[in-house]
């Protein structure tokens, strides 16, 4: 099958690869680049587990072709921890508040929240937090600890 050259900046590193144009961005990240932190829960755009940031905006990588990301900045969960391996504020707040159980949905939440917090620098209401994460499904936690964690992440970020 014909392959197309895709050049993207992933987590700050430039990558150029030939791939079939039908490949999903999620498969490209996971299978071609080994970035398996981005999870695939539904492959039809509902669960949000596959959320990554494209030029800073949250995107469902299962609904996007890798070739569409050509020339873009892509950020995945692997980029979140600090250089010394320690947690960023959102990760730390998740750990402090038991905001994950199986952890399968977690990368998607972290990426959605990264963008949300950058766009909403002041502490939102509970209702706003709920809305911000309503595009991410979690089957384990029942969300309450995620909401708690978001509030703490705001506090830690001060």
């Amino acid at each position: 099958m014909k392959e197309t050259l895709v050049k993207v900046t992933i987590n700050g590193k430039e990558v150029a690869k030939e791939i079939e144009s039908r490949w999903l961005l999620s498969d490209f990240l996971r299978d071609n680049l080994g970035l398996t932190g981005t999870h695939v829960g539904c492959e039809h755009g509902v669960c949000g587990a596959c959320t990554v940031l494209i030029n800073g905006e949250p995107v469902r990588s299962c609904l996007m072709l890798a070739v569409q990301a050509d020339g873009c900045q892509v950020e995945t969960v692997e980029s979140l921890a600090r250089a010394d391996g320690s947690f960023n504020h959102i990760q730390q707040a998740f750990a402090n508040n038991h905001a994950l159980q199986c952890g399968f949905c977690t990368p998607g939440f972290l990426m959605s929240l990264k963008s949300f917090m950058e766009n909403n620098p002041t502490l939102p209401t509970d209702e706003e937090i709920r809305e911000a994460i309503s595009g991410n499904l979690c089957r384990c936690t029942g969300y309450s600890n995620i909401i708690k964690a978001v509030k703490e992440a705001y506090a830690l970020n001060c």
Binding site: R30, D31, G34, L35, T36, G37, T38, H39, V40, T76, V77, E78, L80, A81, G85, F87, Q91, F94, A95, N96, H98, L100, G103, F104, T106, P107, L110
Partner: peptide, 21 residues
Amino acid sequence: VKRKEDYRLLTGNGRFVGDIR
């Protein structure tokens, strides 16, 4: 006690079956 599982899961280093290559 805080969870020992969380570090790998929060940093994208979990290993689910789909991650095995």
